[in-house]
């Protein structure tokens, strides 16, 4: 689920940070740049793990700040295909489910990847949503938001930033995880206990 990535970056250190020790000031700048951001192909940045080296400190002519080249490692959230992760239900519609980890919400389970056979019926508590129900041995197992839902990572996409966005489209997500529930042991934890 989490892994490290090593990155080199050249950054300008604003002079108002000169009162701090250098590594601390650079770490703060890096956190501002990378934390909670998605880097394409690398995943979502969770934390700055450590700083490997700080080089430079060159002041360009006409610039009132020093520029450093820093090598550092980031903790990235990048699930691998086939990994099993527990999440919570965020939305449930006729096109599938949307799951959330709390810090990452763009996990979708399409209808084709739901347990087979399953059907949906209107949710009595929320008119905009539906409730998916898995039929197994003539018994109904509802997919509700009561407990944790385990899903298997089916694929991860990093869509490129759209040039134009339609007015009523949903907000752009730079990283989308597609999950699958169609296997034994997946779905709400209570199904298997």
């Amino acid at each position: 689920m989490f892994c490290l990535s090593e990155i080199e970056h050249t950054l300008r250190l604003p002079p108002h940070l000169l009162n701090l020790p250098l590594p601390e000031a650079i770490k703060g700048e890096l956190e501002g740049l990378f934390l909670d951001k998605v880097i394409a192909k690398l995943g979502l940045c969770v934390s700055v793990y450590d700083i490997r080296s700080i080089d430079g400190g060159f002041i360009f002519p006409g610039d009132g700040a020093s520029t450093y080249t820093v090598k550092f490692r980031l903790i990235m959230f990048r699930p691998f295909v086939g990994e099993v992760i527990s999440a919570r239900l965020k939305e449930s519609s006729s096109t599938g489910l949307r799951l959330s980890l709390g810090f990452f919400d763009d996990i979708y389970v399409s209808v084709a990847l739901l347990p087979n056979p399953s059907h949906h019926e209107p949710d009595p508590e929320n008119q905009n949503q539906v409730r998916w129900i898995w039929e197994f041995n003539e018994e109904n197992y509802p997919l509700d938001g009561m407990d944790e839902i385990r899903f298997r990572v089916h694929s991860i996409q990093y869509p490129s930033i759209p040039l134009e966005q339609e007015k009523d489209s949903k907000p752009f997500a730079p990283m989308v995880v597609t999950g699958s529930l169609d296997a034994d042991g997946l779905g709400p934890v209570s199904w298997w206990v």
Partner: peptide
């Protein structure tokens, strides 16, 4: 920004939690 190593080791959930703690 230059990516030196895309994958420099995996972390378990416990290690990330330990780091934050």
């Amino acid at each position: 920004m230059k990516i030196l190593k895309e994958y420099a080791g995996a972390l378990t959930n416990f290690e990330v939690l330990d780091f934050l703690r």
